[in-house]
Each structure stands twice: as structure tokens, then as C-alpha cells.
């Protein structure tokens, strides 16, 4: 349980990080909160030759709101985001999801960017980013680019970021008038979800029909997935128990979870079915 040897650098400036990344590429790993990386090093599952510690880098933990969009630096601690009134107002789903991320001790260290870049299949924040159609800001020696969340997550522990790129900021926007929730089932409090759902809905104030519905699932695929069928089933309808049940059933039909130690494929489908219906019920109940 000791990591293999690596070179450790602790830059204080983002440009220095970018230059180190361009120099070392795949040989380098970025250390943010360390809640996944450090265990993986100790298990010797990862053997980077250089560890670039981001904890002394300035200006990476800013949190701002511009035009109703939340701009969150990738080194913002999860616990900071969870307790931020700005986040609660502009992107309540982030707060709703963070409550399920590990335990508060983990969230004290864990960062927003770290979780998104690690991109574990059952991680909550990638599901949130996908649902809110977040913009991921990447920097490298080649400059800055912005990727849509839907193009960013590419399967288990894989993102569209190149080895020399660093995620510097994420932009979350919640459509006006939308209500959101995040539900998951885990074996224990704080465990990775067996299945989880991020849900967003807007109800037409005149007609009471569901105008916009977005659903994203975690834990049932290699990464977060949008549940387009389940969304389509209820969009434009009243939020009747029957409609919600149909949405849940559609959700279960559009994923192919894997069986592992903690749950079988069909149990995960069942959970997703139930969670979608419950999540929609929660955000459509006045």
C-alpha cells in the first residue's frame, strides 16, 4: 500500500502547470483533492512518473455567477460548492447531488474538477454536468477550448480532455423555472450509487403540462447517460402517476447496466425505473 516512485512538483501558477503537462503528457497526473488518485497510487493501479500537485496553484478555486450561469473553478472543494448560496441559487442540482458524494470528510478535500476529470461510472457530478449541459473549459499550451458535457464524458474513467489539457472551469446553467432533484440508491450512505438519477423539469404554469424534462442516470453505464426515451415519454404530458411510471419503465429499457458484486443488471434497471418515477414525482409535486 505504498505508491511506486514518482517525481512530485508543486507549481503555484497555472501556466507552469500547463508547461509541465505539455512536457510530460501522459506520464503526468494532476493531484487535486486526491480522494481517488491517492488510493489508486497506493494500490499501484496508476504509475505516473510525475505528480503535479494543484493545491498551491492560485486562481483555480473561484466561484462566480455571470448572467445566471455558475462559473466554478475546478479546484473548488466539493464541500465549498455544497455550502455556497450562489451554487444553491443558480445550480441547486449541484448541491442536491453533492450530498451523495462520499462523506463530508471526502468532500472537504475532493474537488469539483477532480471528480469530473476522474469520471467514475457512478460518480454524481458527471451526471449533473450532463444533465445541465455544462460547459467544460480546458486549457493547454495550445490555448483554451470549451467542450459540451455531452461530448466530454467518453466512458469509464475517460474524458475528451487530451493528456496535456487541464480542466480549469465548469459552467453550469439551470433553465429558468426548472426544478431539479438528485436521487440515488447505494449499499451504504456515501457509497458509489448502484443507480442514480439527476432530474430536471419545467411545468407550464398555464396548462400544468411538463414542458421540458431532462433525465440523466449514473451507475448504470460506463459513464453518465441521458435518458432520452424516458424524457420523451413524459414531455408534453401531465405528471400523472401513470406517466411517471411509464417514464421509469422507458428509462430501464434504454440502459444496459453491468452486474457486479453489489447488484445485478436487472436490479440496477429496477432501481433506475423506480428512481426516475420518484424523482419526477418529487419535482412535479407542488
Amino acid at each position: 500500500m505504498k505508491p511506486p516512485p514518482f517525481k512530485y512538483v508543486r507549481p503555484s501558477d497555472l501556466n507552469e502547470v500547463i508547461s509541465l503537462l505539455s512536457q510530460h503528457g501522459e506520464e503526468a497526473r494532476l493531484l487535486a483533492g486526491g480522494q481517488s488518485l491517492v488510493p489508486m497510487l497506493n494500490f499501484r493501479l496508476l504509475r505516473p512518473s510525475v505528480l503535479i500537485d494543484l493545491n498551491a496553484v492560485t486562481h483555480m478555486d473561484s466561484l462566480a455567477v455571470a448572467d445566471g450561469t455558475l462559473l466554478i473553478g475546478s479546484m473548488v472543494r466539493q464541500r465549498t460548492a455544497e455550502r455556497s448560496p450562489d451554487v444553491l441559487i443558480t445550480a441547486p442540482l449541484v448541491v442536491q447531488a453533492l450530498r451523495h458524494v462520499g462523506h463530508f470528510q471526502i468532500r472537504n478535500r475532493g474537488t469539483m474538477g477532480g471528480s469530473l476529470m476522474h469520471s467514475a461510472p457512478a460518480a454524481e457530478l458527471p451526471g449533473v454536468a450532463l444533465l445541465l449541459e455544462a460547459q467544460m473549459v480546458l486549457r493547454s499550451s495550445r490555448g483554451e477550448r470549451v467542450i459540451q458535457a455531452s461530448d466530454f464524458f467518453c466512458g469509464p474513467f475517460t474524458t475528451a480532455a487530451d493528456p496535456d489539457e487541464i480542466l480549469t472551469e465548469v459552467r453550469f446553467h439551470t433553465p429558468p423555472g426548472a426544478r431539479t432533484t438528485f436521487l440515488e440508491v447505494a449499499r451504504r450512505s456515501g457509497d458509489f450509487a448502484l443507480a442514480g438519477v439527476a432530474a430536471l423539469a419545467r411545468i407550464d404554469p398555464e396548462t400544468r403540462v411538463l414542458k421540458e424534462v431532462r433525465l440523466a442516470a449514473i451507475g448504470v453505464s460506463g459513464g453518465p447517460v441521458r435518458l432520452f426515451q424516458a424524457e420523451a415519454v413524459v414531455t408534453g404530458r401531465y405528471a400523472t402517476p401513470e406517466a411517471l411510471r411509464e417514464s421509469g419503465a422507458a428509462a430501464a429499457d434504454e440502459v444496459t447496466p453491468s452486474t457486479d458484486l453489489h447488484a445485478s443488471e436487472d436490479y440496477r434497471k429496477r432501481l433506475l425505473n423506480v428512481l426516475v418515477a420518484r424523482a419526477l414525482a418529487e419535482i412535479t409535486t407542488l
Binding site: 449499499r187 451504504r188 450512505s189 456515501g190 457509497d191 458509489f192 458484486l261 453489489h262
Partner: peptide
């Protein structure tokens, strides 16, 4: 302990 699930205070 990710796979061997000890009960925590919550459980």
C-alpha cells in the same frame, strides 16, 4: 473497503 461493506454509523 469499497467492496467489503462494513456498516457505518448511518446503517
Amino acid at each position: 473497503f469499497m467492496d467489503y461493506l462494513l456498516p457505518t454509523a448511518v446503517e
